[in-house]
Every structure is written in C-alpha cells, then in structure tokens.
C-alpha cells in the first residue's frame, strides 16, 4: 500500500507565458485513489496531459516507480505510455461513434496485438486465436461494468453515462497499474454517479489499480478518495484526507472566489 507508483516533482507548464501548472509535486501510492480537485481552470487536466505525455514541454519531472528501476516518462513517446501501465479516459469523450461498443473497448488492447497488417491481410491462424482471447477479455470487462448486453450496439446514440463506462472499459483493457480518470462523473445523474462510484471502488479493489481522478462532484470525491490534493491556478493548495482538505481555509477561499466571480 505504501509503495509509490508515480511521482510528480516540480511540474510546471505554461501556455504563451501563462502558467497553467506551477511547481506542483505529489505522489500516488499503489492501490490508492487520489483525487485532484480545484476550481475550473485550475490546471488539473493539464497535469494529466503532462503525466500521459500529451504535453512534452513541461518543466519538472514525472517518474514512474518500477519494481526494478524508475522511469522518467518524458523519454516515453505518448503512444508508449500504456506499455508502462498507465491508461486514461478523457474529459470530452473520445470514442469511435460509428462502430460497436465491443470494437471501442478492443482499441484498449491494441498494445497486446502482436500481429501486423500483413498477418491481418493473410488471416494468420494466430490472429484468430488472439482476437478470440481479447474478445473474451473485453466481454468480461463489459460484464464487470454491467454493459455486456450492449456489446454489439453502436456507440453513437448511447446515453452519456454508458459512453463514460465504455471509456473506462477501454482503459481497463490495457491492464493498467495506474488508471487516470478525467471528470468521470461529469454529466451523469445521481443514479449513474452512484453506479460509477461502486465501479471505481471495485476496479480499485479487484484490479488492484491505483486511480488518479479529477472530479467536481464533491460527494463523489469524498466517498471514493483516500487522499485529495487541491490546486488553484496550477499551484498546490492542500493535501490530506477528503475531510481535511474540505475544511482547509485556502481551499474554501479558492472555491468561494470562483463562486463570487
């Protein structure tokens, strides 16, 4: 429980002279659920984009703690991040609308596709076996999320809550040791939020993944997270248990400031 999975040290990122993230440092421990909160525009998603290497020109360092040796993630191209056990979802849904739920989830297993296009054209027998294995895995994950009845349906036209689950399912296909969720409960109704809460908890327990999430729904954060980090204008405000952070003066002021403006 106490081992660090990921360390962020002195992370800074600016856009056109404007600092979106300002020397932020934190750790994620194995199997913990860490919530990153802050008012709108606090730079939360930017932190995620730096960790997952969509942005490379940040200052500071993002280190993945491995069993044998640590890895500076800056050296890893963005499409290799998943190989290091980090999978994420997106704030604005990034799904393929015009294909089935199953195909969307299978995208998450792309790193396990060992065959190349020549194998596909010639229909190698190993391809069929591999696909069967991946499909079974996807079905298990869809069942886990409670949406296996939709596997052949098109993504286009599904309710928002279902699409959010599909994104999580896709991320789970990569067997992540760290799952990054960008506003998973945004746009969900109360019932869906409760369902999602249970699922995130179950992922944390059954898949033994550490989870890093951004969320505005405080109830969701309070119920789920072991630790919460609050930031504002990209700067660190407070860290602690959900209760501690909620009672923190600086955090309250940051949120009040937002309510006034």
């Amino acid at each position: 429980m106490s081992e660090n999975v990921l360390s962020v040290k002195d992370l800074s990122m600016s856009f056109g002279g404007l600092k979106a993230v300002d020397s932020l440092s934190f750790h994620i421990k194995g199997k913990e659920i860490l919530g990153l909160i802050g008012p709108n525009g606090a730079g939360k998603t930017t932190v995620f984009n730096c960790i997952t290497q969509f942005y490379k020109n940040y200052e500071g360092i993002v280190i993945l703690q491995g069993a044998n040796k640590d890895k500076d993630l800056r050296e890893v191209p963005v499409h290799k991040i998943i190989d290091y056990g980090i999978a994420r979802t997106f704030q604005n849904l990034e799904l393929i609308p015009d294909t089935s739920v199953m195909d969307n989830v299978l995208i998450g297993a792309h790193k396990d596709v060992k065959s190349n296009i020549i194998h596909h054209i010639l229909q190698f027998p190993s391809l069929k076996r591999n696909e069967k294995r991946l499909k079974e895995k996807a079905e298990r994950i869809l069942a886990f999320l409670g949406i296996d009845h939709l596997k052949d349906a098109y993504v286009h036209g599904q309710p928002y809550g279902i699409m959010k689950l599909i994104e999580i399912g896709r991320a789970l296909m990569g067997d992540p040791s760290l799952l990054i969720l960008d506003e998973p409960a945004a746009g969900l109704n109360e019932k869906e939020t409760k369902h999602l809460e249970g699922i995130v908890k179950k992922i944390n327990e059954e898949y033994e993944t550490a989870i890093l999430l951004i969320e505005h729904n405080m109830g969701f954060v309070m119920d789920l997270c072991n630790t919460v980090i609050a930031i504002n204008f990209g700067r660190f405000l407070a860290q602690g248990t959900p209760k501690e952070v909620q009672n923190n003066k600086a955090v309250q002021e940051a949120y009040l400031g937002e309510a006034e403006s």
Binding site: V78, F90, L106, I107, H110, H120, E131
Partner: peptide
C-alpha cells in the same frame, strides 16, 4: 475486408475518430 475486420481496421478508425484516445491506447498515429 481482412484489414478492416482486424485490429488494423480498428486502429484506422481510431486515428480518425478518437485521435487522442488512439494515442493513449498505444496506437501510433
């Protein structure tokens, strides 16, 4: 047919319709 019904086919669709997710899931655009 063999291409579009294979993992490659999925990857082709992913790079056009969910560019960032494709990258995050290990597809080299």
């Amino acid at each position: 047919h063999n291409i579009v019904k294979s993992p490659s086919g999925r990857a082709f669709m992913a790079i056009s319709r969910s560019y960032h997710a494709a990258l995050a899931m290990g597809i080299s655009v």
